[in-house]
């Protein structure tokens, strides 16, 4: 794991290509209340981007604007522009259903459907029609579970309920479910906060492996975790994006005192 921290490896050349997602001047309101204030940020492909910041600073809120999950909250309103591959995702021509298939999401608390493990993973491919038949679906389910590192543990009990798994397994199942629709970006909101250290380590390993294929955004309260898994880090405070840059730079040499105070545990 030690070498992971010092691997800003291909970060430089990936950043050179055009970003996967860009946000410009994004503000989010809950009714009258402003929860996110004028945030601009680029999300790069084949990168893990970490969002850190004190509780209530708007990380989850901003994350949910990236696949328009905020649409499901009646009072929420988004201003500004967010693009996926240079396409405005809040444009009327953009289809939310497709958007969410391309920008998947993993939640803080594992939320498997009360269905079998197989059905949980097959759900996305089914609704999006990604498999031509049962055989192809089997392949997708197996592939997703393998990539989520869960296959060996559940291959003999695919018909069992997804809710019968342990917390860590459930979270990996949710990740498998998200990658089964072959998304381009995966958003993770504190995916390991409900898990013990061993399960957390597995999830981190998984994120590390998945990075090769997806752009990953992860919200975390755990500084070590952010340092371990991410290449870029964004620090939020009171709804404002305070600082954004290479993880190594943020953690070793933050420009802002607020960032420094937070990272060194002075508040938050």
């Amino acid at each position: 794991m030690a070498d992971m921290i010092q691997s800003p490896i291909q970060a430089a050349d990936a950043a050179a290509s055009s970003p996967k997602m860009t946000a410009r001047g994004v503000s989010v309101f809950y009714g009258e209340k402003k929860a996110v204030d004028d945030v601009s940020i680029d999300i790069h492909r084949e990168h893990v981007t970490a969002f850190i910041g004190p509780s209530g600073c708007g990380k989850s809120t901003f994350l949910r604007t990236l696949n328009r999950m905020n649409d499901t909250i009646g009072s929420a309103r988004v201003e500004g522009r967010i693009e996926l591959d240079s396409e405005d995702i809040y444009a009327s021509s953009m289809d939310v259903v497709q958007l969410r298939a391309r920008v998947g999401m993993v939640f803080q608390k594992p939320n498997p459907f009360p269905k079998s493990i197989f059905e949980n993973v097959a759900y996305g491919p089914r609704i999006h029609g990604l498999a031509a038949g049962k055989a192809e679906l089997d392949v997708i389910v197996e592939r997703s579970l393998r990539r989520a590192g869960l296959w060996d543990e559940v291959k003999d009990r695919l018909a069992e309920s997804g809710t019968a798994l342990s917390g860590g397994q459930q979270q990996r199942l949710c990740i498998a479910r998200a990658i089964a629709v072959d998304p381009e970006v995966i958003l993770m909101d504190e995916p390991a906060s409900a898990l013990d250290p061993i399960a957390t380590a597995r999830i981190e390993e998984l994120i590390h492996e998945l990075r090769g294929n997806y752009a990953i955004v992860i919200v975390t309260h755990n500084m070590q975790q952010a340092a371990r898994v991410s290449q870029r880090t964004a620090f939020f405070h009171l709804g404002v994006l305070v600082e954004y840059g290479e993880t190594s730079a943020i953690f070793t040499n933050p420009r802002e005192t607020r960032t420094k105070d937070y990272i060194t545990g002075r508040y938050g």
Binding site: Q98, H128, G129, V139, R143, R146, D182, E209
Partner: peptide, 29 residues
């Protein structure tokens, strides 16, 4: 495990293809 995953990697889904569009229209109907 990484090798295994990579070996069965599919071609990326074409979200804007005609078939997918038809499907989405049907789902909205």
């Amino acid at each position: 495990m990484t090798d295994m995953a990579a070996s069965i990697d599919p071609s990326p889904t074409d979200w804007n293809g005609e078939a997918m569009r038809r499907r989405i229209r049907r789902r909205y109907a």
